[in-house]
Design a protein around this nucleic acid. Structure first.
Length: 204
DNA sequence: CCCTGATTCGC
DNA sequence: GCGAATCAGG
């Protein structure tokens, strides 16, 4: 592959968007991230620094596109994502929260209903009753061992299942190794991607 | 370990 | 000019 005008243009655009070299390389295809970085440097756009060698632009309006699990994909990706049957599960968490152990000495234990900030609907919380007990058990088991990653720490191969209440500090992402091609780990895939069966005679 | 960009240097 | 190998870091 060679650096055609078109490819260079894509490179420039994506780099400007803050995409990583590896992401760009994947998009372009036929090149490695090293090639991309090399090209970036040769193009002289390694760092977005221009003029005023002194004026330290402390303001870094980083508008990183966040791979939010609960938000629509900003990326133009073809989205290999299958349609999760549970995506519409609006049921509040059955609070499987396995924390019988109230290590909290002070009264920092709010028993209120979770308040969701705004806009986006709740993430795909398991609406029990339609999920195999095994899967649920597996999930609860797994969530104890969640890596508790922050939004920024998520990658394409970490489980993006949200755990906890986004309105509090008790919120993180599972972060365990995700199943190839899926956004979630084994356990969470189990509850996220349900067959359409069994949620059939849902009267309303 | 996963990932990031930066640099070098033979091609 | 190109990019693999390597370096340096999170």
């Amino acid at each position: 592959m060679s650096w055609t005008d078109e490819r260079v243009e894509t490179l420039k655009r994506m780099w400007a968007e803050g995409q990583s070299a590896s992401q760009i390389a994947k998009e372009l295809g036929g090149v490695t991230r090293n090639a991309v970085i090399g090209k970036v440097h040769r193009l002289g756009l390694s760092n977005r620094n221009d003029d005023t060698p002194e004026a330290a632009p402390a303001a870094a309006p980083e508008a990183k596109p966040a791979p939010a699990a609960a938000a629509p994909k900003p990326a133009p990706e073809p989205a290999p994502e299958p349609k999760p049957a549970a995506a519409a599960a609006a049921a509040p968490a059955p609070q499987p929260e396995p924390e019988p152990e109230a290590a909290a000495p002070a009264a920092s234990n709010f028993n209120r209903r979770p308040i969701v900030p705004a806009g986006q609907p709740l993430p795909p919380q398991p609406s029990a009753n339609e999920i195999s007990p095994e899967a649920l058990a597996s999930v609860r088991e797994v969530e104890k061992r969640a890596r508790k990653l922050s939004l920024m720490e998520l990658t394409e191969r970490t489980c993006k299942w949200p755990i906890g209440d986004p309105a509090t500090d008790k919120f993180w992402f599972c972060g365990l190794p995700s199943v190839a091609g899926k956004p979630y780990c084994e356990a969470h895939v189990g509850v996220a991607f349900q067959p359409m069966s069994s949620r059939r005679d849902r009267r309303r």
